[in-house]
């Protein structure tokens, strides 16, 4: 019924009105056309081409379609270890960033301090510094003759320099440094919008500050933690520079393996299959986030 009614009102506009409406209907398409071309040719087409390569037996000169490369990537212990390490690394980085970042986000959202703007600048500015510069900075701090070893030696705590530069945790440190600002800004954006009267009400009703935080403010800010986590996790799984520069070849992650498969071994189909597995992992995380947001909005 209702469609019939709206249909009939749509059918009667005067000719001039219809012309205006047709123009305004075409206008967004015209404005979006260049962007659709860029995203279509620069994102959708390349990814589709990559998907196609991952299903070929050989590249170039494919003879048949096959899933064998996915079989290799998902069953070979070498690949499985790397996939496990990649997602573990991203998870650890995300959790640490959330824990370390939350209080800073709280400060940005709630403090009345005159330093607040400076803190804001201090959080954002590192985002604009070249990643290579930051990796060199970490090398200076963690190196055998770096800052930490110099301080420890001056304090007499060590005789031999600690080998801080190779391994999982130096990569974690470097990634947390790069991605922490994204987490802080995501949480602060949500914390800033929470009505403070909820917390005040809990206080008046006798809840202590810890209880108020755990049962009122934290649940309300979960959305900020979730969106920050998605950004941090998705960037972490695809990262290349940090593991290679701070891991010194000891921390093989998917990004490094994909690059090796394609550039060094020139085995594009296997590399492409690994890349698609990485993409699928990212999409699953994004899908979970979408479901979470929808459920959260309904409450």
């Amino acid at each position: 019924m209702s469609t019939a009614v709206s249909g009939s009102t749509d059918a009667v506009p005067m000719a001039s009105q219809r012309r205006v409406r047709d123009v305004s209907r075409l206008m967004p398409l015209a404005l979006l056309a260049p962007g659709i071309v860029v995203i279509g040719l620069g994102l959708v087409w390349p990814i589709a081409a990559m998907l196609a390569v991952s299903l070929q037996d050989k590249f170039p000169d494919a003879t048949r379609v096959t899933l064998e490369h996915y079989g290799t990537v998902l069953s070979d212990p070498y690949f499985l270890r790397i996939i496990g390490r990649t997602f573990a690394l991203a998870t650890v980085v995300t959790v640490i960033a959330a824990l370390v970042g939350y209080p800073v986000a709280w400060y940005l959202a709630r403090s009345n301090s005159r330093w607040k703007h400076l803190v804001f600048l201090g959080v954002i500015a590192p985002l604009m510094v070249s990643i290579i510069v930051r990796m060199i900075g970490w090398t200076i701090i963690l190196g055998n003759e770096g800052l930490i070893n110099a301080v420890l030696r001056a304090l007499g705590a060590i005789d031999e320099p600690l080998r801080l530069m190779q391994g999982f945790w130096s990569v974690v440190l470097g990634l947390v440094h790069i991605l922490l600002p994204f987490m802080i800004l995501s949480i602060a954006a949500v914390l800033g919008k929470i009505d403070r009267s909820y917390a005040e009400a809990a206080n008046i009703l006798g809840a202590n500050p810890v209880r108020t935080f755990l049962s009122v403010t934290l649940p309300l800010s979960v959305q900020g933690i979730a969106s920050g986590s998605v950004i941090v996790f998705c960037i972490s799984v695809g990262v290349f520079v940090t593991p290679i520069m701070l891991g010194r070849g000891q921390v093989a992650v998917l990004a490094i393996t994909i690059q090796e498969q394609m550039v060094v071994l020139v085995d594009w189909p296997t590399g492409a299959a690994a890349a698609m597995v990485l993409t699928a992992g990212t999409l699953v995380v994004l899908g979970l986030y979408g479901m979470f947001i929808r459920r959260h909005a309904r409450r």
Binding site: I39, L43, I235, G238, I258, M262, A275, L286
Partner: peptide
């Protein structure tokens, strides 16, 4: 959402895919 995707899309995948085409 699609226009914003390059922000979080795994850089290594986009890199290889662009090289491919």
């Amino acid at each position: 959402l699609v226009f914003m995707t390059p922000l979080i899309f795994p850089a290594i995948v986009l890199a290889a895919a662009l090289a491919l085409v």
